[in-house]
Write a protein that binds this DNA or RNA. Sequence first.
RNA 1: GCGCCUGUAGCUCAGUUGGAGAGAGCAACUGCCUUCUAAGCAGUGGGUCAGGGGUUCGAAUCCCUUCAGGCGCGCCA
Length: 547
Amino acid sequence: MKKELIKIIEDSLKTLGIEAIPTIEVEVPPNESLGDLATPVAMSLSRTLKKSPREIAEELVNSVGDKAAFEKIGIAGPGFINFTFSKEYLYSEIKNLLRDKGKFLREDIGKGRRVQIEFVSANPTGPLHLGHGRGAATGEALSNLLEAAGYKVEREYYINNAGKQVKLLGLSVFARYQQLLGAEYPFPEEGYRGGYIEEIASTIIKEKGEKYIKAEFDEVSDFFIDHSYGIMLSRIKEDLKDFGITFDTWQSERELYGEGDVKRAIYDLKTKGLIYEKDGAIWFKSTPFGDDKDRVIIKKDGEYTYFTSDIAYHRKKIERKYDELINMWGADHHGYIPRLKAAVEALGYPKEKLKILLVQMVTLLRGGEPVQMSKRAGEFVTLREVIEEVGVDTTKFMFLTRRPDSHLEFDLEVAKSQSSENPVFYVQYANARINSIFAHTKEKGINTDRLCDADFRLLSTPEELRIIRKLLMYPMMFEGAVNSLEPHRITFYLQELSGLFHPYYNKYRVVNDNVEMTRARLALCEAIRIVLQDGLTILGVSTPEKM
RNA sequence: GCGCCUGUAGCUCAGUUGGAGAGAGCAACUGCCUUCUAAGCAGUGGGUCAGGGGUUCGAAUCCCUUCAGGCGCGCCA
């Protein structure tokens, strides 16, 4: 719809002999009585052509070639050109949708380009909390969206299993282990205090008995660390699975050390003269690449920093030759962006290749009161608890009806009390109702084959035409969502589409005495169902047959 | 102190990358189930787009500034 219009506008500009044709912008007019689509192009041409916008608009309108596609073309306001498509055009497009939905719904924007999306990547030192859930839902929806747009998408989870944090996890479990067996052992100051630490300690007792009692931690640390983080990681995987999130690859931080990636990264920087020593530590000269200070990559005590392995990690990503890299981070890591981009650029890669999307914090409330989310203190509500309390689809929709970079207040009481009113059900219900209509046709023995051949001219009520127009907007909305990397646009679109269907359903009977009319309306319902299911699938939300 | 994000209806949030008279859901109130699912429908009320300047044909959107909230500024991850 949009593409065709742009072409028509371009053609008529050419007929007018205008040489410098700008990128034609097309938008939806604020009021539907004005038309289906509008362009402000006359206004932007006004300056270069030294003519008034309305004058240009009139010339442009007069030179439109394909008049049959439009019912009317009007000029309004300061010089907007409003296009109202003809019914014939709408009918032929809806027919295309039904005939070949893949071709209609999909815009091949990616053209097979490879993109890797790294998201969640929570430290395996505790269960996933709600903030991780937001990243998970958003990352999954974005991945699905890009995949639908013709990108080859790889979803990756980066496992921080090498540093101080997993060591602290091991030590926390070790301390609990000793305490459970009645041995005196001081719990680490900064240790993880959640109940899961004790659970892990108990399983170790069950499996290994008192084998490690009164041992030195340093001697058994490998076991405690590996065992503990292994359990945490498998729990995280369970949580993600139950939340409906899948990953293609799991990159381990340890592996980067084991396979020499870290050494190679340092070597690369060294040969570029970007490494120096100061105060007993080794530094990476990141300031020439836009960072505000240089960064330590090997500490005084000989240990690497987290940043060092991250450099290696991103070097490896780039070596894998993705056309684009997307990292989805919690917004609390935003200060880390300049240094990582500096590293990417220092290694000789264009930093535009790496896009870092921030997902803002989730403030968890219960009845208006903030709930603590500190992992260390062990007081936090897990993602699992939330989805058990309010449901997977509702939780996802809570996240996907918001811009990722907006702060979000998630009140458990509100989420629960509203869960039956949640917009997700409104959309799913529209789909379920349509299923129900088709179930009804079966009982009545109505032929639902080849609905694309129905007589669309029978769809002439304002409601029906409005629905058709909305359906035809889907590709335009889809393209916008892809280009801006904003899956939440789909969420809003689906609500709007459902908001047209429900009143229609209420006012008109799809299955009625007129066979041809029934088939035409069934065709419309089928088209709605196709779009609803496509959108919900991209969002990672289920499409129940019945509700 | 510096940097990033946010401020739109009572509440939670959209606002198509600068477009036309500012939207949705929830909450409140009034009606609608013997016919394809009432998780629905029809209707009513609700705004200084945080404040102030600027840029231009045109600003919730861009720039400056003030205020408010959140988050960062480690040889932690």
